Simulated assay, not measured.
Amino acid sequence: MAAVAAHQLSQCITCHAWNAELSMVAVCPNNSEVHIYKASPDGSSIWNRIHILQKHDQLISGIDWGMRSNKIVTVSHDRNSYVWSLEGVEWLPTLVILRLNRAAICVKWSPRENKFAVGSGAKSVCICYYEQDNNWWVSKLIRKKHNSSVTSVAWHPNNVLLATSSADGKCRVFSTFIKGVDTRDSTVSPFCDMKFGEQVVQLDLAYSWAFGAKWSPSGNSLAYVGHSSTIYFIDDVGPSAVAQEVAFRDLPLRDILFLSEKMVVGVGFDCNPMLFAADSNGTWSFVKFLDEKKSTATTSKYGSQFSEAFGKFYGQAKHGSNVDSVEPSRAPGGSHENCITCIVPLPHPGETTLRHFSTSGMDGKVVIWELNDLDSHFSQLAL
């Protein structure tokens, strides 16, 4: 595993998203703006800032870029959401009324991109869809199901089921079937017969805040993390779900990503992606840290590692360049030097297993990773 490139785009990055061609990246530099960077055409690894999206009044907490529609959706602590469409050379915003009385925290397009879900601090989830007749975006709320803030949302591949994680320590799965938007076909049966907002299952496995819920590529498995340095894996989601947990001694994770049905990458406060894998019996376990440069550089005891990470969390991130043209950074101790808050897949045509992904965090960097030694990782698991 190697970090292909680390780009210092800001002092701190809240979240980021890529376009379908992976030629442009949208980042929130920990404020109310979205900066869009484009790779230099000469292949010099220099990224140029080409757009600044300004409409929100407070911190942008979530962003997603539709691969099919080429639309960007943003949510903010100002309780609003905007859908941005590229018209010529300008990005034009369309306001989405969420009807929230607390901050919007996270957002994600559905697989078909005819809906998107917004998690909020109002203990509710907004399912937003476009009404062609009225030419506006409408939101339907899933209320009175969560006991605290919704920290992440994740769409099942069938475009109907939605998993959420919450600060109440629970992970839940809901039906989001909307008549006239979704179709009743065999791919979503029997969930298409459920009412909108009906709860499929509630997973009460964590004893702390829950983050980063994600489905496996097939949708047969679900995983999420707890703030108690634990990751939870659930198979056959429903009344007969089978769950297992993997506890680790390192700092908690904030987000996760399925690379395949049997491999997951987690990122968080250790500033170093962690690889988890399942053996032939389906038993999950921690394999290794992926940032080899940082792993080899860190030789202190666990107490010193904790103190160092604790200081980084409360200390100020390394200041980066804040100009329109930036060059890739070269971190002396590792690819990331502060908490990683976001991980995004970078799918390449013809790949059955995801080998590329990117991360961003409080150090203001976007790091692109390439997984090129899957066999060695599985051999380590066998040991």
Rank of each mutant, 00 (worst) to 15 (best):
A2I: 15
H7Q: 08
S10D: 05
I13S: 01
W18G: 06
E21G: 14
V25A: 04
V27T: 12
N31P: 06
Y37D: 02
S40G: 12
S44W: 07
I50R: 15
I52M: 07
L59T: 14
I63M: 11
I63Q: 06
G66N: 06
K71I: 01
V73A: 10
T74K: 12
N80T: 15
N80V: 12
Y82C: 05
W84L: 04
L86H: 15
G88T: 15
V89W: 14
W91S: 00
P93C: 05
L95R: 15
A103H: 10
A104D: 03
C106N: 10
S120M: 01
I127W: 04
Y129I: 11
Y130W: 14
Q132S: 15
S139C: 15
S152E: 01
V153H: 02
A154D: 00
P157C: 09
N158F: 13
N158Q: 14
N158G: 06
S166H: 08
A167Q: 14
D168C: 15
T176M: 05
I178W: 03
K179E: 11
S186L: 14
T187Y: 09
T187Q: 02
F191C: 00
K195Y: 10
V201Y: 07
L203A: 00
A206K: 07
Y207I: 08
S208W: 03
S208L: 00
L222F: 11
A223H: 04
V225P: 00
Y232R: 08
P239C: 13
S240A: 12
A241Y: 13
A241L: 06
V242T: 12
V242I: 13
V246A: 03
S260E: 02
E261H: 14
G268F: 06
S285Y: 03
F286E: 00
F289R: 15
E292Y: 11
K301E: 01
K312A: 05
Q316E: 03
Q316F: 05
G320H: 08
V323P: 01
P328A: 06
G334W: 07
C339P: 00
C342K: 11
V344R: 02
P345D: 02
P349F: 13
P349W: 11
G350Y: 11
R355C: 14
R355D: 01
T359H: 08
M362S: 07
M362I: 09
D363Y: 12
V366Y: 07
V366C: 09
I368W: 01
D373E: 09
D375K: 13
F378M: 03
Q380F: 01
Q380L: 05
